[in-house]
Structure formats: C-alpha cells, structure tokens
Design a protein around this nucleic acid. Structure first.
Lengths: 347, 347
DNA sequence: CATCCCCCCGCAAACGATTGCGCTGCCTCG
DNA sequence: CGAGGCAGCGCAATCGTTTGCGGGGGGATG
C-alpha cells in the first residue's frame, strides 16, 4: 500500500535517527557511515549502523555536511547560453572529469548579459562553489579581476584576460583561421571576406586578427571584414547581405562561426546564389549535423569536449595545489573540408 | 595593487564580521540585511549594517542559511543528455519561470543509465532540492514510485507513469503522428513505415501506438514498424537499412524523432536513393537547423521551451500548495512541411 | 596479579545563519 | 507622576554533521 498522502511526508531521517536505531551516538554513526573513518569503529557496530541507515533510507544531508566541513564538492560552470550547440559538449567534457573527481557541476546561463553574469556568479559563490569554470566570451571586465583578487579558483574557456594570471584553455584559433584562408587561397580565391563575430568578445577579436594576418601572408586584401553584432544566424545574414551589396566581387567567406555561416546560407537562398559555385563558405566549430546541410559545410573543428575536459583538469589541479603557476593551453583544431568550398567560377 | 597571492585569500567575511564592524549583534545584522525583517530595526542601524556589509564584501553563506531554514531555493532538473538538441530548450524553458520564481536549477545528466539516474537523483536529494523536474524517457521503474511515496515533489516531462498521480507535461504525440500519417496518405502513400524509438521509453511507445492507430484509420497496413534501439542517428540508419532490405515497397517513413530521420538520410546517401522522390521522411521534434538539411526535413514541431516552462509552473504550483491534485497537460504540436515529403513516384 | 596500551566509543564544540523570546529604555497618556 | 506600551536590540537555541579529545574496558605483557 503506497503512501496515500505524499503531501505530508514524514521528515527525512537524520543521522540522529540512524544512531538511535542502531543504539549508538551520532558520532559513532557518522564514523561508521564514512568509509574513511570506518576503521575506527568495530566491524560489528559499523554493520549495525549501516543496516539501520539503509533500513531508514537515510541520506546524509550534504547541506549540513558542507557547513561543517566547508567543502561543497561543487564547482560552477558559467556559459552564455546552453541553447548554442557549442556548449553542451563543453559541459559534458567538464562533467566527464569533474564527476569522477568527486565534484558536481552547477551550470548557469548568462545570455551574455553583464548583469546576469554578475548575479549568477554571486549566487554560485554564496552557494560556496569551490571553483569556477567560465566559458563566456565577453572580453575583460572588472568582475574577473575582482574574483581573482578574492582568491576565487577559476579557469577560463575560450577567453583570455590580459594581464591576469588565470589558467585558460582555448582552441587554436590562429591556426584554424590560417588553415581556412590557406584552403581558399589554394583553390584560387583572391577576394576572401571574414564575417567576424562581435569584436567585444575575445574569440571574435582573436579570429579577426588571425584572419587579417592570414590574408596578408597570402598577399590578399584585408579590408573585407564586416563585424556581426552577435554570434547568430540572423546577424550573419545581415552582415552577408551588406557585404554582397558593397563588395560584389567577394567569392569566398570565412565565417566567425558556424551559425554565421548558416546566415550566409540564408542569404544565398534569398538571392539565388549557389554555394559553392558562386561563393564558398567556411564555418568555425563544427557543430553537429553540419555534414547534412545543403551543401555540407566546410568548417574548422574545435574539440569542445576536450576543451571542457581540459579546463576541468586544470581546475582540479588548482584546487589541489593552489600555488601552481597558471598555465594556459591551446588545443589543436582541424579544418574539415566538405561541400561548401570550391574553386571560384572562372568567367 | 592587486593581491599578489590569491592562493592565500582571507576567509570570506561572515555575518559575525559584519555585525562586529557595525557594532551590533549578529541577530541584528541578520535582520537588517533581510528586507523582510528590516523594519524591526531602526533605519540608522540598518544603514550602518548594510554599509558594513558592503564594505566587507559580505555574501551570505547560503549553505548555513539553508541548514537553518531548511529551504535551499533549488530544484533539480534530470535529463538524459544535454548534448541532444532536444533538451537545451527545455532547460531554458524551465529556468525562464523558475528563476523569476526565486529558484535555481540544478541540471544533471543520466545518459539514460538507470544506475546513473539513481545516483544523480540521490545526489540532488542529499543536496536538499525542493523539487524535481524529470525529463528522462525511461518507462516506469520503481524509482519514481519510491520518490513519490517519500513525498518528493516532482513533475514529469515527456513521460507518463502508469498508476501514479504525478503531474506531467508532454507534447501531443498522438495528434502529431496522426498529422504526419495523414499528410503522407494525402500525398498518395500506401506503404508507410514507422521507425519507432525504443519501446522501453514512454515516448517511443506512445508514438508507435499512435502510428498504428493512424495507419489503421487510413486503411493502411500496420506491420511496418521496426524499433530503433536508441534515439540516435546510427540506430535510425540500421533500422532503415533493415527495413529497406525486407520491405522494398516502402515509400514513406515516419521517424520516431529527428535523429532517426537523419539516420535515414545517411542510408539514402549510401544507396543512392533520392528523398523525397524515392522515399519521403518525416521527423519529430523540429530540432534546430532542420530547414538547412538536404532536403529540408518535414517534421512535427514540439514546443520544447514551453514544455519546460509549463513543467516549471506546475512544479511551482505543487511547491506552493502540495495538496493540489496532480493534473497533466498536453501541449499542442504542429506539422511543419518542408522538402522531405512528396507524392510517391508513379511507375 | 598489576600495569600499560590500545581499541571503541561518547561528549561536546563547532560551522554560519535564523528566529522566538525577553529585556531595556523611551515615549505617551491618563 | 506613574503605568503601560512599543520600538529596538541582544540572548541563546537550533538546523545536521564532523571531529578533536578523553574515558572506559578488555587483552596482552611482565
């Protein structure tokens, strides 16, 4: 017979209840339940306690435990928007190393809003997270510096902050962009544009700078670099429209990321342009299902899962040994050539 | 001058520190800081306390607060895999109503593994979440019943459990599948298959049943219903291969979800079949970027954000008034016709 | 048989906040 | 001038665990 009135549950059993049921003191019960301290207790007593615990369905109250031990076993993961397919793999990567390491991950979204970011991080801190992994793309604002000064352990993903010795892990944007430009140049393109992400983000700026260097290295013009207001399909589309209107000679574009590239696809459809025959496009990130697009999108694959995993490893390191000097690492990316790039039309 | 040794941070200030700085008792400080109780304190004192708090950078320790008040302001959100594009919108939907409601959301992944699910839920409970939103697809297993008996407040997404009065919100699968079948039948298809999701999931079973009814209503055969082992592209592909081998006459398929439909695309590419000319496909869910596929996938759009938001509203309701009878709601879905469906070839 | 040691276990103090209760002192009113 | 009331604040208990310390009892040893 199941409980007919689940709305009036008996309160959850506490350690006291277990101790009483086993006829011991709470201290003894506590030690018996903790594998680390169990050897201080006679096997017989330990058995009795554990039996009582399981009979009562005892679950330790980790709020109380955290208060006493001042360890929560929790780290915060700050991302802009879970809905961006970029981030779920990062999240899973982080979890894949933190959970076996005994930590749980608390995810918050900031929507790239400074105020929300502050509020969310405050909330995480008041919940006593032991560390932070920050994967938001905003360039340096005082918050990070402030946190660092307060001794908050953290590691950054996809973001560097100038003059701040905080560990960071990022994809090798420079090499990725260079590979993309080289690929297009080798196909014979001479007027290559870059639809950059917002230059207020560290990633947007890095890729734009890398693009400029890459085209210069090939002796190509570096003035075709409109900026998208956001990393979104619609902003990519409007940037592409403007570009086409103002610089009709463009035959290839390196998009700041895959979403921006998708925006280009929309414009092609609008204007009856053919990709890759009329214009080639390269994305960035290699988010899922790009191989099923029309045409399949050539892009730069970034190892997002690894990005997350590596960041998590670095955080574990800094939690273990806080004095370790902050190192930053760059993960290799790779150009994956699909169907959205081809030699320019020769007419 | 920034702190040169962030590895030895001064411990975070406590309410005591604030109280001492303001020259009052902790009780007074507590009341002064809490807007609800602030009127018990003289304006002058309150000001002094608040000033001291902000000077010290005081952040209330919500672990201690939770222990005392036995309220954590946290609810758990249990999903199978954040990487499945289905879930991020649900997550955001949940957050969009819970955060304004004063709650924070803790997300966990189960990977559809029973053991992981149990462990994750245990972890959430030990952290004293006040409610649970469960969006995993496994059919009834004893865990849910157990939780319900223990009086755990929860609401289910995309899942019903038989004989259990737990609120649930789901998409209207029956109507969606019927619309898909009707669309195909109207185009002239007579041999329509269903690549069902795993029948161990509530969704898989519901859609399969709905499909059976729908084809019968149209006087069509109901024996073309292979089951996919998982909701994945690769399992969709193998099911499609088998189907094609055994029932070459099939001209249209209703896939259990979009991923399975994508698996069909892979098989078409392998075998040189044309979609929709040789065979039509309909997906389910309308995950992002389906309009950019080759061909754009016809699918049934499920309002995932709303699913999450509605579930969150129901959870808020049950948290407020636990005795309210559990109601379940069905959200309307809609067929969105794109390029993957057409009349069968007439040869 | 006495001594010592060590194994088990209980005592009690924390962790940082909240909150019912009661005390003080001032103001008001009869 | 005295009594009552109330505003403002402090006292101390409490939430559920963990953990240093000490004590009692049993076994081994001389």
């Amino acid at each position: 017979m199941s409980n007919p009135r689940p709305s009036h549950p008996s309160p959850a059993p506490t350690l006291r209840d277990v101790a009483e049921a086993a006829g011991v003191h709470t201290a003894t019960a506590s030690r018996a339940l903790n594998p680390k301290t169990r050897q201080q207790i006679s096997a017989e007593t330990a058995r009795r306690v554990m039996r009582a615990a399981r009979a009562l369905g005892y679950q330790p109250n980790s709020v109380a435990r955290s208060l006493k031990t001042s360890r929560t076993g929790t780290v915060g993961l700050v991302i802009p928007d879970l809905t961006n397919p970029l981030f779920p793999p990062i999240v899973r990567g982080v979890e894949s190393v933190l959970e076996p390491g005994g930590y749980n991950v608390w995810i918050v979204n900031t929507d790239n809003d400074e105020e929300r970011e502050r509020a969310q991080i405050d909330s995480l801190r008041s919940r006593q997270v032991e560390g932070l992994i920050i994967a938001t793309a905003r360039l340096d604002h005082p918050l990070l510096r402030h946190l660092h000064e307060q001794g908050v352990r953290m590691v950054l993903i996809n973001r560097q902050v100038e003059n701040l010795r905080v560990p960071a892990v990022t994809g090798d944007d420079v090499t990725g962009v260079a590979a993309a430009v080289h690929h297009l140049a080798a196909l014979g393109h001479t007027r290559i544009a870059h639809l950059s992400g917002p230059l207020s983000t560290s990633t947007g700026r890095a890729r734009a700078r890398a693009f400029r260097h890459a085209v210069r290295d090939h002796g190509l013009p570096d003035d075709l670099m409109p900026e998208c207001a956001h990393w979104s399909e619609s902003d990519g589309a409007t940037a592409m429209r403007n570009l086409l209107d103002r610089s009709p000679g463009v035959t290839a574009v390196v998009a700041g990321n895959d979403l921006i590239a998708l925006g280009c696809y929309d414009v092609f459809a609008e204007r009856g342009l053919s990709c890759p025959d009329d214009v080639s496009v390269i994305g960035f990130n290699d988010m899922p299902f790009l191989d099923k697009l029309r045409p399949p999108l050539t892009t730069v694959a970034v190892p997002h899962h690894e990005l997350g995993a590596e960041a998590a490893r670095m955080l574990l390191d800094t939690l273990d040994t806080p004095d370790r000097p902050a190192r930053s690492i760059l993960l290799p990316v790779s150009l994956v050539v699909r169907g959205s790039t081809a030699a320019p039309r020769t007419d």
